[in-house]
Design a protein around this nucleic acid. Structure first.
Lengths: 407, 407
DNA sequence: ATTATTTTCTCGACAGTCGAGAAATTAAGT
DNA sequence: ACTTAATTTCTCGACTGTCGAGAAAATAAT
C-alpha cells in the first residue's frame, strides 16, 4: 500500500540521513556532510541547526586547522542525547550493556542464567532486575533510556518483541513488551542472535563493496543452529530475516530433536546431536539439554586421529547443514555463507559434509558452490549488530519525535 | 543505503499514488481521489492538472448528476497514453496480449511452441516475430509500447530480464533484454509465472483484508512445480519472490529429475514423476520430456478406485510437496498456501501426503497447519499478475519521465 | 428567481531544497 | 603590517510542493 508524501517527510528523511552518515563516519564538518549525503550546503545548515537546537548533535572543538581557509567545525552526536541498553541472552548467561547515543560502551556485566527449567517467569524477573541494576549503576535517569535491544537464539515474532520459541524455554513464549512496559517507557525490540550477526556482516560488506553487495547468510553453529539472511532491499536499506533454520526439516522421520520433532537439522548438527551419533546412541533418544564443549573436543580429537565413528558423526552434521543450506539457497538466491559460533572449531571436520550436502542440489550444480567463509568473534558481531540496528532505530524515533519537543 | 529526498520526489510519489488509486477504483472524481489518497483537495488539483497536461489522464463526460450540487467530473487514465504487451510462455504455446494503459485487452493470440529442443535461438526469433505481429495487427506505433512483460516457468534473474533456467531450455539462458533491444525501445521485464499468480492473489487478498494481510504462497502443480511468495513489505508495497522451489532438494540421492540432479521436489511431484512411480519405473530413469495429461488422468482414476501403486505415487508426490512447503515455511513464516495449476485436479489424491509432509516439521507442529486452498483459473491469475505489476511499473516510469516531456 | 448543496478551483501561508554569493577565518605572499 | 588567496560556513531569494480556507461554479429544491 502506497502512502502519501509531504515536505515534512522529506525533512525527516534527510535528517535521518544526516544522522546516519554522522554515525558511520564519526564527527564530520558541514561540507563533508554535504558531500556524503548529496544534499546542498544550505540544506545541511538548516538541518544541523534544527538538530542542534533539539540537542541531538553539537559542535565539537575544532581540531588543529589543517590548511588555510576558515577552519572546519565538526559536528557530532551528543552522547547524552539518549541511551541504549543491549541485552544478549545466551544459553548460560545474560549480558547487559549500557551504551550512549554515540555508540560508546558505558557499562557492562553478565549474570549467570539460572538453569532452572521451570523459570520463564523467574527469567523475566531476572531480566527486569538486571535492567534496573545497570540503570542504578549509572547516573542516568530512566527517561533517557530510549531503547532496550534484546537478542536471543530461537524464533522471534517479526512484529512484536515476543520470543516465540527458544532452545531453553521451548514453546513457553516470552513477551518482553508486556514484561517491561510497567517499568520502562523505552521502546523494546527483540531480534534473533544470528540475524544480528548477519546484519553486522552485511553492514561491513556494504562498506567494502558498496552497491555491489547483494546478499549474505550467517550460519551459527553451537548447541543449536541459527541462520540469518541479509539481502539488499529495493530502496530501503537492507532486508534481514532470521529463519527457523535449526528446526527446518532435514530428513522426514529422522533423529529426535530437542524440540520434540523428528528430523530437524539441529538433530544432526547441534552439539548434542554430534555427541549422540558419535556415541552411537539411538537417534530417538531424548537428547541432553546441554553438552560440555570439552566433551565434543574429545570426539573431534578422535575424529582427527582417523577414528571412523566420530568422523562420521561430524560428516553427518555437515551433510545436514549442507542440505539445509542448499534448500535455503534454492528459496532465495546464491549468496556467500559466513559460518560463526563455537562450532567453527570443528569446521575442518564438517567441511566435507557441508560441501557434499550443498552439491547435491540443483542450484549449486548449476550456479556453483557458494563462497563459504569462517568468521570468528561471534560475540563481537552480535553486539555490533545490536548497535547497528538499535542506533538507527533511535535515530529514526528521535527525528520523528524530536521535531515536536525541539525548540 | 539511504538516499536523499527532495520536494520533487514528493510530487512524484504522490502522482504515482493518484494513478494507483485511479487504477484500483476506475474513474474517480476529484473529491474521491482526495479521500482515498489522504491528500488535500488543492494538491489533487495541482497533480491532476499536471497529469492532464502530460496527457496521462483525461476528464470523462460527467455521468448523470446523482444529487444536487455541482456535478462531479470523473478523471480516468487515457487509454492511448501507452500500451503494454504481455507475453506468457507456457510449455506448449506462447500467448501474446496487447493491453492499453487502462488495462483493457485489445488483441490476443497464441502461437504454438515449436518443440524443437535445439531452439533457443529459434525461440527468440519466434518471440520477436510474435511481437511484431501483434504490433502490426494494431494501429499503434512502436514508441507507444512502453513495456513488454514476459513470464515463464523456471528461474529468472532478479535484476535483469534473463531466463536463467527453464524446463524447456534447461541452462541455456535467454536474455530478453539483449534479444529485444534491437527492435524495441520498450522496457522489458521478466517474471516467473507462479510469482505472478502469487502477486495476483496477494493483491486480491490485500483488497479484502487491507492491513491485516501478511503473506501468502502460491504453489503451481503441473509438468513442473512452481512457487511464488508474496509478503507485505515494511513500507514499500509488497515483497514478492519466486524461489527455485521445484528444484529444491527433497531427498539427497533421490529420484532423477529432468534437470539432471537427483532428489528435486519435481522428481517426485512433477507430472512425469508421478507417472514414473505409478509405472514402477526405476527412479533413475531419465524422465519423459512431456506427459499427456490424459495419461495422468488414467492413473488418477485407478488411484481413486483404490489401486495401491498409483495411489502411492500421488502420496509420494504429496509428501515431497508437503516437506518442501514445510521447509519454505521454516525459512519464512507461517502463511496460507494457494494451490493452482493443472495438478489441482488431483488434489484429492495429493492432499493426505501434503498434510503429512507438512506435519513432519517443527514449525507446523508448533504453529499449526497452514491454511491450504485450491484456486482454479491459473491462467487468469497469471494475466492478472502481469497487469498488476506491469501497469504499476508503467505508472512509475511515466511519472518520472512524463514530468520532463510534459509541457 | 432564489436558496441550499456539492464540487472544483484559486489564493496565500507555510515547509523544504537549492544555487549563488556574502561573511568569516586562516595561511601565504609581499 | 597589510594584502591576497583559499576554504568553510552562513544567508538570501527563487523554486517546488502541500495545505486550509474560501471563492467560484453548477445543479436541485423551494
Amino acid at each position: 500500500m502506497l502512502t502519501k508524501s509531504s515536505t515534512e517527510l522529506v525533512r525527516q528523511r534527510n535528517s535521518v540521513l544526516v544522522l546516519s552518515v554522522l554515525r558511520r563516519h564519526g564527527a564530520l564538518a558541514h561540507t563533508e556532510i554535504a558531500d556524503s549525503t548529496g544534499l546542498s550546503s544550505a540544506t545541511i545548515s538548516a538541518i544541523t541547526a534544527d538538530l542542534e537546537r533539539a540537542q541531538i548533535i553539537e559542535k565539537s572543538e575544532q581540531q588543529a586547522a589543517s590548511g588555510r581557509g576558515r577552519p572546519r567545525v565538526l559536528l557530532r552526536q551528543r552522547r547524552d542525547c539518549g541511551y541504549l541498553i543491549v541485552v544478549i541472552i545466551s544459553s548460560d548467561a545474560v549480558q547487559y550493556s549500557l551504551v550512549d547515543y554515540a555508540g560508546k560502551l558505558i557499562d557492562r556485566f553478565s549474570e549467570e542464567r539460572s538453569h532452572d527449567p521451570a523459570g520463564a517467569a523467574r527469567f523475566i524477573a531476572g531480566v527486569r532486575a538486571g535492567l534496573s541494576r545497570i540503570l542504578d549503576r549509572s547516573r542516568i535517569t530512566q527517561e533517557k533510556v530510549l531503547l532496550i535491544s534484546i537478542s536471543s537464539k530461537g524464533l522471534v515474532n517479526s512484529t512484536e518483541p515476543v520470543l516465540v520459541w527458544s532452545p531453553i524455554f521451548g514453546s513457553e513464549q516470552i513477551d518482553f513488551e508486556s514484561a517491561l512496559r510497567p517499568d520502562w517507557q523505552a521502546k523494546v525490540i527483540l531480534d534473533n542472535e544470528t540475524l544480528l550477526v548477519a546484519a553486522a556482516l552485511g553492514a561491513r560488506e556494504e562498506i567494502v563493496k558498496g552497491a555491489d553487495f547483494r546478499s549474505l547468510a550467517a550460519l551459527s553453529l553451537g548447541h543449536s543452529v541459527g541462520l540469518g539472511i541479509v539481502r539488499r532491499g529495493n530502496q530501503t536499506g537492507q532486508e534481514i530475516s532470521a529463519p527457523n533454520f535449526g528446526h527446518m526439516l532435514h530428513m522426514a522421520g529422522g533423529g529426535l530433536c530437542r524440540c520434540g520433532t523428528r528430523g530437524c537439522i539441529e538433530a544432526y548438527a547441534g552439539f548434542y546431536a554430534i555427541l549422540r551419533s558419535a556415541f552411537e546412541v539411538p537417534l530417538d533418544t531424548i537428547p541432553a539439554k546441554f553438552v560440555p564443549v570439552a566433551e565434543l573436543d574429545k570426539i573431534a580429537a578422535k575424529a582427527r586421529q582417523g577414528h571412523r565413528i566420530p568422523a562420521f558423526a561430524f560428516r553427518q552434521a555437515g551433510l545436514a547443514l549442507g542440505n539445509g543450506l542448499s534448500r535455503m539457497l534454492s528459496l532465495t538466491e546464491r549468496m556467500p555463507i559466513a559460518i560463526t559460533g563455537p562450532g567453527t572449531r570443528y569446521y575442518d571436520l564438517l567441511r566435507q559434509g557441508i560441501e557434499e550436502g550443498l552439491s547435491q542440489s540443483h542450484i549449486v550444480r548449476m550456479e556453483g558452490m557458494p563462497e563459504i567463509r569462517v568468521v570468528a568473534d561471534e560475540q563481537i558481531l552480535v553486539f555490533e549488530g545490536h548497535l547497528n540496528r538499535a542506533l538507527s532505530v533511535i535515530d529514526q524515533d528521535i527525528v520523528i519525535s524530536g521535531g515536536q519537543s525541539g525548540d
